[in-house]
């Protein structure tokens, strides 16, 4: 666990706020005057997990840096829905880059700050880069790996919704196996996305042995905020990978976004952990273990698995992936190894 869970206060740290907690223990999101780094009026779909995850993460980073933060943003849903000309939803210095070069742009900003400091700038200004899984795991991967390898002082946040949702739900290297997308249709002998391809970038980031790597979901705000806060304590390259369900691309009801993210974590489909210098330091344990069907069934992108003849073999393969995560990260006992 990345933070000290509070002792029993009715809802403990599960809810966003808790009137019984002393103010200093409350979440950033529960504050009456929070940053709202991404403002109302943005054009994300109803129930967008990415809009929510971005506010959670950037608000926490703003809190940690006292508002001294510059943001570089890759092309993708997040950029499209937040900044249609001439409007912007961003309440912090924000720069739009190409689809693939966000990490490099952020590196450049960090370098500029370094130079300014040499020339007498006293303020401690930090840099955050953000993008979706397309801009991060596919197109921007070279720049990202370079940023890690140089250990530039940037926090890179990837909002993973498992595909190119903005352009019409095409497959990315973060699309899970068996999921239907516009480019992995639910047809043929092996419908949906293929097994055995794609990549889990948090593990690749750890392989760079950068100071800090973490995963999180929009279903656990306190964990997410603690990880952003922790990330800002390090100098150098840091990476946070946040699972953000996409109601449109995943085929879920707009009110279910958080519930689906929670199920991804509770079934073991998405491991939530943090790592420092390449070593896993803590794991968020599964609270109520569930079979993967609970996570798959509400999503239309897996509807082909639950037709007249359920694809039990495919479901079993997905369960095996979840079981592997559970074993690998110790998700049942919170990594107590």
């Amino acid at each position: 666990m990345s933070f000290q869970p509070v002792k029993f206060y009715q809802t403990g740290t599960f809810t966003v706020g808790n009137r019984l907690l002393p103010p200093e223990e409350r979440s950033v999101q529960s504050q009456e005057k929070r940053y709202n780094s991404i403002n109302s009026g943005h054009r994300a779909c109803q129930g967008c997990g990415e809009a929510l995850g971005a506010r959670y993460a950037i608000d926490a980073a703003m809190e940690a840096t006292n508002g001294r933060l510059i943001c570089a943003n890759a092309t993708g849903c997040l950029e499209v829905f937040s900044t249609p000309y001439p409007e912007t939803s961003w309440q912090l210095p924000w720069i739009h880059s190409l689809f693939g070069n966000t990490a490099a742009v952020a590196t450049g900003i960090a370098a500029a700050i370094k130079v300014k400091k040499l020339k007498g700038e006293r303020r401690n200004i930090r840099v955050v880069a953000q993008g979706g899984d397309g801009g991060t795991t596919d197109i921007g991967f070279g720049c990202l790996s370079g940023m890690f390898e140089r250990n530039d002082d940037v926090l890179y946040i990837c909002y993973d919704n498992g595909g190119y949702m903005n352009t019409g739900i095409q497959r990315s290297s973060a699309t899970p196996p068996a999921a239907r997308t516009a480019t992995t249709m639910a047809v043929g002998p092996e419908p949906g996305n293929v097994f055995g391809q794609g990549k889990f970038v948090p593990a690749i980031a750890m392989a760079h042995e950068i100071p800090y790597v973490a995963t999180a979901t929009v279903a656990d705000l306190r964990d997410l905020e603690a990880k952003v806060r922790r990330a800002m304590e390090f100098q150098g390259a840091r990476y946070i990978h946040i699972l953000v369900p996409c109601p449109l691309g995943w085929g879920t009801a707009s009110n279910e976004t958080i519930r689906i993210a929670r199920l991804a974590k509770e079934t073991g489909m998405f491991p939530v952990f943090e790592a420092e210098y390449g070593e896993v330091k803590s794991v968020v344990a599964i609270r109520h273990p569930l079979p993967v069907e609970e996570y798959l069934k509400p999503q239309k992108r897996y509807a082909h698995l639950f037709g007249k003849t359920p694809q039990v073999e495919v479901i079993a393969k997905l369960q095996a992936l979840a079981d592997r995560n559970i074993k690998k990260y110790g998700l049942l006992d919170g990594g107590a190894r």
């Binding site: 809810t15 966003v16 706020g17 009137r19 999101q29 529960s30 991404i38 109302s40 129930g47 929510l52």
Partner: peptide, 14 residues
Amino acid sequence: FECDNCYGVCPDNA
């Protein structure tokens, strides 16, 4: 009971 969940989970700060 003022748990702030509605306030926190709204993607539109509404």
